[in-house]
Write a protein that binds this DNA or RNA. Structure first.
Lengths: 333, 333
DNA sequence: TGGCGGTGCGGGAACGATTCCGCAATAGTT
DNA sequence: AACTATTGCGGAATCGTTCCCGCACCGCCA
């Protein structure tokens, strides 16, 4: 309405001929107000175009009205985290809470911890310094995927069973004829990486095959992907399938396969542990595990917000399902 | 330090044996304090581990301490925006301002406009409702790339000369033997898309070739990419190069080319208007225009923060350079 | 009818930082 | 030496909201 002066609770009070207290009670859910006054006040409020001053509200409630989102370092360009981020924003904006991103700098993390009511951390890398900071300040923490140490009563975890997903994927490859699958993993410094790796080793043991695995750092370059892929492909006996985990690395694997004279989808099955639109654009389209990151982000934010509203009720724990999207790269028939 | 009670300016005042006023002046840059007291107060502050209460500060200053970041709808998964976002966070955290993301919902946009001191909007789509809201409230707005209507005295723009980049890219293709380049564009509802399209048409006119272009929406699926690519490739005379704009679509073009029996990098040159790590993983590696999104985000945030500090000094205008990364997909020699 | 519990609402004090204003002490001017 | 300008600092109000108290009023039961 008015471009300059914002309308405050006092304006409503005057207009509705009640006190500030009553307005506050009528708009909120606390305090005792009659149904009639509540309705009246609310009508006046919407008519005047009232929007609460968040700074004042936060000051009074001794809250910040924001949650932090902590992503792994060097994550730039990974579609998974982008989607996850938007999921967090989806849920947070429902409760009018802002989402603050932390950059990788220590300064930023420290700042974030100070100006937020809680933090969502996804794919927490072992030994991330943010943890100690939060523990000592007793700030609510929700992790997407398990962290190395358990969260406390002010925390929670939303996680997927990547070990089982991996087993399911390898079973699928087996049905499609693969007997010696190789694994290009994301390292073992995150729970995700460890779970996948565990699943892979478990499957190999169960089927009595020699594991053929290599690790790629989160911030691997295209050259790294090529090098590690070739390394896996040159093992004797040569693998008949490659499962790759880092987001987008499947494309690099296709390239490496071509370099070795292999035809992906025919004499080499290829699958990715992270689905994304690029996987459908590749040739052949690549079988992938759908992690539904956006929903994951929503659930993490949801848990955190509940945790902020009722502190100390944790630790909470929720499992988030995954799904296998089968495509041409593993459908050689 | 103390996990419960935060240390306030009053604690410092007591400890340093001065008044709140002096503490505030000593920590800030306003007011008159002697060098000695300033140093003393600052020492006490850091010793006590003081962190200003943002809510209180914002309330008093009638600011929110946050800037909004408005991304195009359905942007999920595009590496460009992820990098851009982190650039904004980089710069914003230098000044302790939080970055609030808007989801695509109208509610979220409205909220963001209310709780932020200004907004960075990148690749503004024509007719985005956010604009009117900002105009009427006189909120600072910085656009990454030009919007349809000019920004006012409370706004600014950071932009790249995509028309020239396109001309340079096409000239490069020409040198590599291409005479009939086709263009897979991002539509003409953004300034980026319009500029690229203009550059393409201009080059075609200049070289007397018939344009062969198609558009892909921002949220195009893999199937859309395939369909449009095939459409371009089936034009007679067949194109000898494809320039594609939407992030990641180059991969789909490679696939479509293979379907037509063409070998990318040999009988079909391929180039992308947006570089990303996937472009280096593809086979062949794809020549791309480097837009340096992270730096772009930093510059946008920088401009916005300056604009918030000194309102009404706009409109400002900065050009951000681009660079051509030549790779195997256009190096057939 | 007097006392008592419950309901509806208003007064006022916070929350923590900033800033206008004023007062004392010192420096500078004639 | 008297008078003004400047410097250094403190008091108090203020931003908009929430929440603890307390007051008036109504109905109920003894």
């Amino acid at each position: 309405m008015q471009s300059r002066a914002a309308v405050t609770i006092l304006d409503i009070a005057r207009e509705a001929k009640v006190s500030r207290t009553t307005v506050s009670a009528a708009l909120g859910s606390t305090g005792r107000v009659s149904g009639a006054t509540r309705e009246h006040v609310r009508a006046v409020a919407t008519q005047l175009g009232y929007a609460p001053n968040q700074a004042a509200r936060n000051l009074r409630r001794s809250r910040t009205g924001a949650i932090g989102l902590h992503l792994p370092e060097k994550v730039t360009g990974l579609a998974y985290y982008m989607d996850f981020t938007f999921g967090v924003v989806d849920r947070a904006s429902e409760d009018d809470v802002a989402v603050v991103l932390t950059s990788s700098s220590a300064h930023s993390s420290a700042l974030t911890a100070k100006i937020t009511d809680g933090i969502v951390a996804v794919d927490l890398i072992d030994g991330d310094p943010i943890i100690g900071d939060l523990e000592s300040r007793n700030i609510p923490l929700v992790t997407g995927e398990h962290g190395r140490q358990a969260v406390g009563r002010n925390g929670g975890t939303v996680w997927s069973d990547h070990r089982s997903s991996m087993l399911e994927l390898l079973d699928h490859l087996y049905l499609r004829g693969s007997r010696r699958p190789a694994f290009l993993g994301p390292g073992r410094s995150s729970d995700w990486g460890r779970s996948l790796h565990r699943g892979y080793l478990e499957w190999c043991t169960r089927h009595g095959v020699q594991p053929n695995a290599a690790d790629l750092a989160f911030n691997a370059t295209a050259a790294d992907v090529r090098e590690k892929s070739l390394k896996l492909l040159r093992v004797d006996p040569r693998p008949d399938a490659i499962v790759c985990a880092p987001d987008g690395s499947a494309i690099g694997v296709l390239t490496a396969a071509a370099e070795c004279g292999l035809t992906p989808g025919e004499d080499l099955l290829v699958a990715s542990c992270v689905d994304s639109s690029v996987m459908q654009m590749a040739s052949p389209q690549i079988t992938s595990i759908e992690l539904s990151p956006r929903e994951m982000g929503q659930r993490c934010a949801d848990m955190l917000i509940r945790l902020i509203q009722e502190p100390g009720t944790g630790p909470w724990d929720e499992e988030h399902p995954t799904m296998l999207n089968v495509r041409a790269s593993t459908r050689p028939i």
